[in-house]
């Protein structure tokens, strides 16, 4: 989290829907929080749960994974796999004590620029409420 209490968010967006959706939000001049660092992946199905862990370890206060609506996956079924896996990950992280507000998943299609804005606002708001996640940072260099 930066000095002015702005959370860092890492977002993994699928190439075909959510990335295009976020693009549309930009070209349509929809304003949304600038805390999000977008990483484009080909499909949410290739988001390794360790990406989420590593993002949190390396300084993210919240992580968002967003892809095509069920049934719309460019690769037919990638988002179904992602839904199952990341749903499990969310449960596991909650059990370990990672605030559930730090991890979100959403379906945003290429035409949903406004939904993208809502999703980002919600993610940032939640991460801000959850606060800085210093406890899990990798950079706890102790002598």
């Amino acid at each position: 989290m930066s000095a002015n209490n702005e959370p860092n968010i890492v977002a993994f967006l699928c190439n075909w829907c959510s990335y295009a959706g976020a693009d549309l939000a930009g070209t349509s001049r929809v304003h949304y929080p600038s805390n999000v660092q977008v990483i484009r992946v080909m499909c949410t199905g290739r988001v390794n749960p360790l990406y989420v862990m590593n993002a949190l370890q390396q300084g993210a206060d919240g992580v968002l994974v967003s892809g095509c609506h069920p049934g719309d996956c460019h690769y037919m079924e990638g988002n179904y796999y992602a839904r199952r896996r990341l749903g499990m990950l969310k449960d596991l992280m909650e059990f370990v004590g990672v605030d559930p507000r730090r991890f979100h998943m959403s379906w945003v299609s290429a035409s949903e620029g406004h939904k993208w804005k809502e999703v980002v606002e919600k993610t940032v708001e939640d991460a801000r409420e959850a606060g800085s996640f210093e406890g899990f940072r990798r950079r706890q260099i102790d002598w």
């Binding site: 839904r83 199952r84 499990m88 979100h104 919600k122």
Partner: peptide, 15 residues
Amino acid sequence: FQASYKPDDPEDFIL
């Protein structure tokens, strides 16, 4: 389990 899915898997956690 993790290499399969059902179309109606729970998705209440999705925004």
